[in-house]
Design a binder for these strands. Structure first.
Length: 262
DNA sequence: ATGACCGCTCCAAGCGGA
């Protein structure tokens, strides 16, 4: 079977409901993973999603911050949410499809402004979050699994508009890239997006602050799709829907899609 | 400086985003 999954940081699910519905109508992924819902679960506007065939939803939410949700046309089972680092944040939820594939949806902490844990508590929490991801996957090796989300790190030189200018900017510092690589290695996760699109600059986020995000094109690839090798060894293809960044009242992130032959 | 915006909240100034 062909299975299409998308991940999208939508920066408020209530404000973005119209363009979430537009994406579901135009692209019809089997599963859409959302981050930064910024809503308690019982306040997520589900009716429009249900009307489009997304009747299966698992989510974790909190008021005003964070929040992750998995919308699915296929039946899914809620297989838990991990509160890594004990922050009390809604940053992870997992769901299992009837074919046994597990989907992890993560929203890794952004990490604040200063890339130094001695002066910036949030940066330390981000590194600790990635360390706990590593330890979790090292102790409980994932199989038949897909991991997506806003991981808030652009690991490769061609994942940012200027490697040199971003080396000391949170999201592209060497210490973050190393922590992300260790979490990836611990689970033997394959970077599906870069396996499918190995060459060239590729971004999924552009700041709201730029006057013309498209012309400036100072982006970063913060949103990722990973899979275990039992899934990545079959066929797959990927795309970033850059044009969605230009929709009415947009998120600052574009959705990242992956299609698998399961 | 990428660079002066966006969305949230005890409703409005401050936090967080990255």
């Amino acid at each position: 079977m062909t299975f299409t999954l998308a991940t999208w940081n939508i920066n408020s699910v209530r404000l973005r409901e119209p363009i979430v519905c537009k994406l579901l109508q135009e692209e019809a992924p089997d599963v859409l993973c959302l981050q930064e819902c910024k809503s308690p679960v019982d306040k997520i506007p589900l009716e429009g999603f249900r009307a489009l065939g997304y009747e299966h939803i698992v989510a974790r939410g909190q008021k005003g911050y964070n929040g992750v949700a998995i919308l699915s046309k296929l039946p899914i089972e809620d297989v838990g949410g991990h509160d890594l680092v004990g922050l009390g944040h809604a940053r992870h939820v997992a769901a299992k499809l009837e074919n046994g594939v597990t989907i992890h949806n993560f929203y890794v902490p952004a990490g604040g402004d200063v890339p130094d844990r001695e002066v910036n508590l949030k940066f330390g929490q981000k590194l600790d979050y990635l360390t706990e991801m590593r330890d979790w996957f090292h102790g409980d090796r994932p199989e038949k699994s897909i991991l997506v989300g806003d991981l808030n790190i652009a690991p490769r030189e061609d994942d940012v508009w200027s490697h040199k200018q971003l080396l000391k900017i949170v999201s592209h510092t060497p210490v973050e890239v190393e922590h992300l690589a260790q979490a990836q290695d611990a689970g033997n996760w394959v970077d599906i997006t870069r396996q499918d699109i190995p060459e060239g600059q590729l971004y999924s986020w552009w700041s709201y602050r730029a006057k013309d995000w498209d012309a400036a094109d100072k982006g970063r690839r913060l949103d990722h799709v990973w899979a275990t090798s039992d899934i990545s060894n079959a066929g797959h293809s990927s795309r970033v829907l850059r044009h969605v960044r230009g929709w009415e009242k947009p998120s600052d992130h574009a959705p990242v899609f992956a299609t698998f032959d399961l």
